[in-house]
Design a binder for these strands. Sequence first.
DNA 1: CGAGTATTTGAGCAGCATCAATAAGAGTGG
DNA 2: CCACTCTTATTGATGCTGCTCAAATACTCG
Lengths: 206, 206
Amino acid sequence: MGDNTFSVLNTICTDLKKPAKSIIFRQGEHADFLYFIQSGALKLDYQLEDGRNLVLDFLWPDRFFGIAENETYAWSATTLVDVHLKRFKLSSVQVLAQEHPNITNLLLQQKMASLMAAKTHITLMSCPTATSKLIGFLLEYKKIPNYFNPSTQVLTLIMSRKDIADYLGMTFETTSRIFKYLETNGYIKKLNHRQIQLNMHKLQLT
Amino acid sequence: MGDNTFSVLNTICTDLKKPAKSIIFRQGEHADFLYFIQSGALKLDYQLEDGRNLVLDFLWPDRFFGIAENETYAWSATTLVDVHLKRFKLSSVQVLAQEHPNITNLLLQQKMASLMAAKTHITLMSCPTATSKLIGFLLEYKKIPNYFNPSTQVLTLIMSRKDIADYLGMTFETTSRIFKYLETNGYIKKLNHRQIQLNMHKLQLT
DNA sequence: CGAGTATTTGAGCAGCATCAATAAGAGTGG
DNA sequence: CCACTCTTATTGATGCTGCTCAAATACTCG
């Protein structure tokens, strides 16, 4: 797969840059494009009629997104930081996939990644306490390159307390309180609101 | 797609029947087979090291499952009732997919279905109260043919209180208490532990 | 019918949501 | 660069929700 598949796809892609906190597409919009993240990060969020706002996933470089069902995006995509994307017209991708079946394999692989992310998400949400949810979240987040500095053990959170809360199924006040609790008990040290130093010795025991 | 793809797949499938409460595969086992549900129902569950047992999804007829990552099943599959399956050797499917690209499209479609189910699941888990979780669950479950009788409005639950609890992220005692609450307040009527008559007028208001 | 399993019910406590107010940080324009 | 505004984050007080542990009841299956 790999190289050849990508070079074929590259013939129909458009480069795209978006600033932080901009919307790439909204849930319900007609799905015309498939996207690929070259750099940056974004969240997939979903608004419910009752006013709740869920964060379904956070996406990092090398991920495709926007593969829709029913011709319509089922959720919105919002950038967290400045991003650099590739954009593909979905109809062109479908045509191209006829001749290059590996494109479908690539999309299948990406769906697989989404599904494993969903499993992790569900696992975190099922944690019995807010503390274990948040610790689980930090340990997952630590795996993301660029936002964790292994030598200083500092995590750079690029999402708000509310985003984390909407991802874990709790209120942002609770998120804030648990951060406080973790700091008080030596699990983390807050350098500022978005920079958190981890004490892995304590965190791993949980 | 459809007919041709299925008839090609049928050349390599084995028929398989399993009684209720039997394990089709376990998480961690080497993934040799892909399955298709002809009739019956099952759950996908996942054991955590800390003793928690998650139910990731309930599966109904016409669904493929067992598409693995890393050569290994990431969760277990357990039947809820007697099931009738088709089984495909994964290696054979891969070979066949080379000549019949629509097989990959079919698998992609199935992954899409899994992902939408995960979205529904996450949405339910994010409900602020156990009552809204359970009502949401009942309204989703109602959509499954065979287990809801529209003329009598009776749901037949084929899973235990614990399965529901493990799916929604709560304890089975709470599940039981909420059923009681729903009955007391006229949302449902329990004919017995597994047969529940819905009062849609009241349920839909939530 | 009897043993094992599933479900219900109870009492008490811990944890989280809610509402509310304050503090910190980010962004803007003079 | 500072003052002002707006957003994001923290902190407090209170009550309800759901978990825990425990016991009783209902159901299933051989």
